[in-house]
Amino acid sequence: MSDGAARLRAAFPTDRAALIPYVMGGFPSVEQSLDYARALAPYADILELGIPFSDPLADGPTIQAAGQRSLAAGTRPGDVIDIAAALRGGPPVVLMTYVTLLIAAGPGAFFARAAAADVAGVIIPDLPIDEGDEIRTAAHTSGVAVVPLAAPTTTDERLHAIGRESDAFTYLVSVAGVTGGEVAVDESLREFVGRARRAIEGPLAVGFGIRTPAQAAAIGGFADGVVIASHLVRLIEDAEDHAHAIAALDHYGAELIAALAGARTA
């Protein structure tokens, strides 16, 4: 197990589901996104930090637009790694990046720089488990965990293969779709998490379309973590200024933690 994987596993609390909030690096600027990450850090068990990409296939309109604004402001992948470095000492950071950015940087160089910034893991939504040996080797060498994804359409056989690749945690995509839709907390989601549980050892975090504390709490009742992304980006977009955005994130983070804590005691 890489050092990053061990840190991520240890970050999952035993008495409630982990909260994994997302911040798009460089949206609307590098400095402001660092402030947003700092506002969420007290509530985050793990922090997910997005590297903006020109063609994010797995993302819906909200994260696409945030990424475009970040790129228009001149954000480069190295700037986002610098944000992670500035967050050192807080919750472990996982970077969310598309695969071609790693190819362009060179996987070895990318992960060496990420490890130097204490990045614990990386989520690559367009790198299924059967691709990217060179990337996985480079990540492992640097002690950065690659967090695999599984989807409701994933077969049981593949879930087992994903489990073998997963040394930190596994990211379960709640619905067939892109980020920013609306999750349905229903029997089919429970069934999917149950299938994943039987095939995969280690924590299971559910993401895509989780908006409300009630949804987070309901999913936190049967999963080990919840990822909240697009909704946080919307809170920032809708705030009248930077200070209000920080206040909104602080308020929402506290609400989420209270809801997650209540889910297991109820």
Partner: peptide, 12 residues
Amino acid sequence: GGRYVPETVISA
């Protein structure tokens, strides 16, 4: 070549 796509469409 390859299949650099979200896991959701792998089964398809």
